[in-house]
Structures are given as structure tokens and as C-alpha cells.
């Protein structure tokens, strides 16, 4: 948890990142940046998905629709926070010559998206039948 707080500080303190270790080959930094952008794209896609659930399933009950949409939006927010946190940690690891950090987040996100998708299918089919 302390580590996370330290990382958050580094989001806004560019000079501090450069203080430690050696500057890696800029291509590694660019690759790290592309990963960061990929996570951001995932977050934006989840936000778009939240909108889509709200707009394209009008016959769903209000509670289900809003619940699913908010779940997707929350996943989007988590992805964007994960994007910058992971970017900072990787940049630091590259500077120090350490291994890149591992994380359970991708697995958790996959499970969440799968669950939401299954719930959506069930709810839509139940709505059609009932």
C-alpha cells in the first residue's frame, strides 16, 4: 500500500523518476508508453461499452441497465489507473535494471469482463422470454 502511495506521487513528479538508475534506451521507454496507451484504450473502450449498454438495451429494467453500465464504467476507471501505475513501475524497474513488475490485474479484468458479458446475455434473454 505504501508502495502504491509512492507510485502515485511519482505520477506527478517527473524529475524524481529520473533521479534513480540509468536512463534506458529510449525505445524501451517508447514500448512502455505504447503499453500504457493500450491500457488507456481498454479503459476508453470499457467506457464506451458502458454507454452502449445504457443506450442499446432500452427494454431492460432500469436497475439492470444502470448496474451493468456502472460496472463497465468502474472497470474503465480501474484500467486507466492501472495504466499509469504500471507505466511508472515499469519505467522505474527499467531504470534500476530490475525485473518488470508482475500483476494479477489482467486476470481480474478478464474475469470481470467475462462475468459482465455473461450477465448481460442472461438478462437480455430473460427479458426477451419474460
Amino acid at each position: 500500500m505504501i508502495d502504491f502511495v509512492r507510485n502515485v506521487r511519482l505520477w506527478f513528479a517527473p524529475e524524481e523518476v529520473r533521479e534513480e538508475g540509468r536512463t534506458p534506451d529510449y525505445r524501451f521507454s517508447l514500448a512502455n508508453e505504447r503499453t500504457f496507451l493500450a491500457w488507456l484504450r481498454t479503459a476508453l473502450a470499457l467506457i464506451g461499452g458502458g454507454f452502449a449498454v445504457d443506450q442499446f438495451l432500452p427494454h431492460l429494467r432500469w436497475a439492470w441497465r444502470v448496474g451493468l453500465a456502472l460496472a463497465l464504467l468502474a472497470a474503465g476507471v480501474l484500467c486507466s489507473l492501472r495504466a499509469i501505475n504500471h507505466w511508472v513501475r515499469c519505467e522505474r524497474a527499467m531504470r534500476r535494471g530490475e525485473d518488470l513488475p508482475t500483476s494479477r490485474f489482467p486476470a481480474l479484468l478478464s474475469v470481470l469482463v467475462a462475468v459482465v458479458a455473461v450477465v448481460m446475455v442472461v438478462v437480455v434473454l430473460a427479458g426477451r422470454a419474460g
Binding site: 505520477w11 521507454s29 508508453e33 486507466s80 499509469i84
Partner: peptide
């Protein structure tokens, strides 16, 4: 040069704000 953290933080802030607006 590498991506400045402030730029990265700004991009993330815009995304989170978009989610809140959503």
C-alpha cells in the same frame, strides 16, 4: 525522450473524468 509523467497523468485524468461524466 520518454513520456513525461505529467502528460501521462493528464491523459489518465481526462479518461477518469470522462467515466465520471458517463
Amino acid at each position: 525522450r520518454a513520456l513525461p509523467p505529467r502528460l501521462a497523468a493528464a491523459a489518465v485524468a481526462a479518461t477518469v473524468a470522462l467515466a465520471v461524466c458517463a
